[in-house]
Design a protein around this nucleic acid. Structure first.
Length: 495
RNA sequence: GCGGGUAUAGCACAAUGGUAGUGCAACAGCCUUCCAAGCUGAUUAUGCGGGUUCGAUUCCCGCUACCCGCUCCA
C-alpha cells in the first residue's frame, strides 16, 4: 500500500490535500492522471446506467434518467432521512480498556442504597453475565439492588464512581462526546442555529426529493431508475487507508423504483449487472466477494443488502466494501412524504392504483472504485526498467497511448507531432520527445499507458510505426493509417 | 478518540550540538536507430511551532500528517 501511495504521488494520480500546509486528515486531491482515471470510471458508469442502460429480464432496455441535485438541501431533508436525529450518537471512551461505546448502548446499574460502585454494561450483555460480574465485584449484590439507567442519562458527576463494561476499576469512562457525522454550515451571511444546513452525507437523498419532479416531467413509468454522481461528505471518526475512507468522497448511485412484488427479481438483476460492471473493468472474480449482509447488521431501512467487496491490500486476505446494493423498501419516500407533507405516491394507470414504489439502490464509491482499479493494476515486474507497471484496462487508462519519436531529430519529430494532433481529437494521448526511448517506455509503464507508437527511420520509408504493448513489451509494426483503428479496437472493443 | 511507530530533496538512503551528503528520478543540453546507457550543467530537503543552547536537523515539549492496531463506518 505504501508503494501504491508513493507511486500515486510521484506520477500525479493522487496528492494529499493542502499538501504544502501539511495536509488535512481525510482529504485528498486528484492530480492530472488521477482526474483522467476518475473521469473514465465516472463516464463509464454513467454510460452503462443512463446513456445505454442494460436490457431488463424481459429483454427490453430498462429506463433510467440522470440527475444532479444540490449538495446542500433543506435541513428537514436530513431529519426525514434520520441523519440528524439518529446518527449524532454520544460516544464514551474507556481510558483503561481503550474501548469506545455508544452512550445509548450502555446501561448503568446504580446501587439503590447509594453505597458502593455503579456498574456499566453493554446493552447486549446477558443476564447471567451481569449477575456473575455483580457478584464478583460488588460483594454479592444482585440486580434487584440496583436501578437501571442508560449511560447518556447518567449525571456527569457520577462517572467517577462507574466501573466500565470491560474493566474492574471505577472512573475510567470519559464524558459522553457528540460524534456528528455530518458537516454543517450556515446558509446566508450570518451564522445562527436558524440557518444551519448540512453538506449531504450521501447523494441518494437528492434523488428522493426529486422523485415527484422527475415523474411529472420525464414520462417515466415504474419500474425506472434515477442515477446521480456527486460528492458526499462525512465527518468520519477515523479516515484511513489512503482514499478508501475519506471525509470528502464521490458516489455513484442509482435508485431503482419498482413495485414491491417485483423486488426480488430486480434485486438479483442489479446484483448481476453490477458484478458484470466490475468484471469488465478488470477486477478479477477471485478478488471480488459478494457479502449478503447479515440481518443484524442491516441498516434500519433495509431488509436486504449485498455488499460487493474487493480485496484491497489493506484488507487482504479479507475484503472491504466497494459497492452496496440495498433494498431500501419505500422507507425514504415514506419519510419524505411525511416530513414534507407532499404526496409522493405513484399512480399506475394500467393497474389504476396509487402506491409508494420500493427502491433498490446500487450505490458505489467512485473514489473507492478508483482505488480498486489502481490497486488491481499495480503490478511488480523486476524484469523491466521501471520495476512496476499499471495494468489498467485500456478503457480506464488515463493515457491511451504515447507517441514517441525515436530521437529528438527532425526526421522523427514532425511525423510524431502530426500523429499526435491527429489522435488527440479522439483519444487522450501523450507526445513525449525528450530523453532516450527506454526511459520514455518506463515512464509510460508506470502510469499504465497501454500502447506506445514509435516513429523511426522506417516510418519515413514505408509509413509504418512500431506499437509497443505495455504488458508484454512486445513490438509490432503497423501502418500510420491504421493507428486510429488499432486504438479504437483495443480501447473500445470496436473499430 | 486511544495505544504504538514514522517524519532529512520527487523517491531510496546517509550524517552531524558547529558549511546537511550519496544514488536514482525530474530539468537543460550533447550524444543516441527501440527498453531508466554515457557525458556536461543547473535546480531541489531536515513536516510545523515553541524551549534549552553562543549555536538545534540532532536534546526536550507541543502540534500536524502518514502507517499499524483498537474504535467508528448510519
Amino acid at each position: 500500500m505504501k508503494d501504491i501511495v508513493a507511486l500515486c504521488k510521484r506520477r500525479g494520480f493522487i496528492f494529499p490535500a493542502s499538501d504544502i500546509y501539511g495536509g488535512l486528515n481525510g482529504f485528498w486531491d486528484y492530480g492530472p492522471l488521477g482526474v483522467e482515471l476518475k473521469n473514465n470510471l465516472r463516464d463509464r458508469w454513467w454510460r452503462d446506467m443512463v446513456i445505454a442502460p442494460p436490457l431488463g429480464p424481459d429483454g427490453t432496455p430498462v429506463n433510467i434518467v440522470g440527475l444532479d441535485s444540490s449538495i446542500i438541501q433543506n435541513p428537514k431533508c436530513w431529519e426525514a432521512s434520520g441523519h440528524v436525529g439518529g446518527f449524532n450518537d454520544p460516544m464514551v471512551d474507556c481510558r483503561e480498556s481503550k474501548k469506545r461505546y455508544r452512550a445509548d448502548h450502555v446501561f448503568v446499574l446504580i446501587p439503590k442504597d447509594g453505597e458502593g460502585h455503579a456498574f456499566a454494561f453493554d446493552q447486549d450483555a446477558e443476564d447471567v453475565e451481569i449477575e456473575k460480574r455483580l457478584k464478583k465485584l460488588s460483594r454479592g449484590k444482585s440486580v434487584a439492588d440496583f436501578n437501571k439507567e442508560v449511560l447518556d442519562q447518567v449525571p456527569l458527576d457520577m462517572f467517577s464512581n462507574i466501573i466500565g463494561p470491560d474493566v474492574k476499576t471505577a472512573g475510567t469512562l470519559t464524558e459522553p462526546r457528540q460524534f456528528n457525522m455530518m458537516f454543517h454550515t450556515y446558509v446566508g451571511a450570518t451564522a445562527s442555529e436558524d440557518n444551519k444546513a448540512y453538506l449531504r452525507p450521501e447523494t441518494c437523498a437528492g434523488i428522493f426529493l426529486n422523485f415527484k419532479n422527475v415523474v411529472d416531467s420525464s414520462r417515466v413509468k415504474v419500474p425506472f431508475g434515477i442515477a446521480q454522481i456527486g460528492k458526499a461528505f462525512r465527518n468520519e471518526v477515523t479516515p484511513r487507508n489512503f482514499i478508501f475512507r475519506s471525509r470528502e468522497f464521490e458516489q455513484m448511485e442509482l435508485e431503482w423504483f419498482c413495485a414491491e412484488e417485483d423486488v426480488p427479481m430486480w434485486f438479483d438483476f442489479w446484483v448481476e449487472q453490477r458484478r458484470a460492471f466490475w468484471l469488465s473493468l478488470g477486477l478479477p472474480k477471485s478478488e471480488l466477494h459478494f457479502l449478503d449482509v447479515d440481518k443484524a447488521d442491516l441498516a434500519h431501512y433495509s431488509s436486504r443488502t449485498i455488499d460487493i467487496e474487493y480485496r484491497f491490500p489493506f484488507a487482504a486476505p479479507g475484503f472491504d466494501e466497494l459497492e452496496g446494493i440495498a433494498h431500501r423498501g419505500n422507507y425514504d419516500l415514506t419519510q419524505h412524504q411525511e416530513f414534507s407533507g407532499q404526496k409522493l405516491d405513484y399512480f399506475d394507470q394500467a393497474e389504476n392504483k396509487r402506491f409508494l414504489p420500493h427502491v433498490i439502490e446500487p450505490s458505489t464509491g467512485l473514489t473507492r472504485g478508483v482505488l480498486a482499479l489502481i490497486c488491481q493494476a499495480y503490478t511488480v515486474d523486476e524484469n523491466r526498467p521501471s520495476g512496476v507497471y499499471l495494468d489498467f484496462h485500456p478503457s480506464m487508462a488515463p493515457k491511451k497511448a504515447a507517441i514517441l519519436p525515436l530521437t529528438a531529430k527532425d526526421k522523427h519529430v514532425p511525423t510524431a507531432q502530426k500523429l499526435y494532433l491527429d489522435l488527440r481529437d479522439e483519444f487522450v494521448v501523450d507526445l513525449d520527445i525528450k530523453q532516450n526511448i527506454g526511459k520514455r517506455y518506463a515512464r509510460q509503464d508506470e502510469i499504465g499507458t497501454p500502447y506506445c507508437f514509435t516513429i523511426d527511420n522506417e516510418t519515413a520509408e514505408d509509413h509504418s510505426v512500431t506499437v509497443r504493448d505495455r504488458n508484454t513489451m512486445a513490438q509490432e509494426r503497423i501502418h500510420l493509417d491504421k493507428v486510429k483503428d488499432f486504438l479504437r479496437e483495443k480501447i473500445n472493443g470496436r473499430s
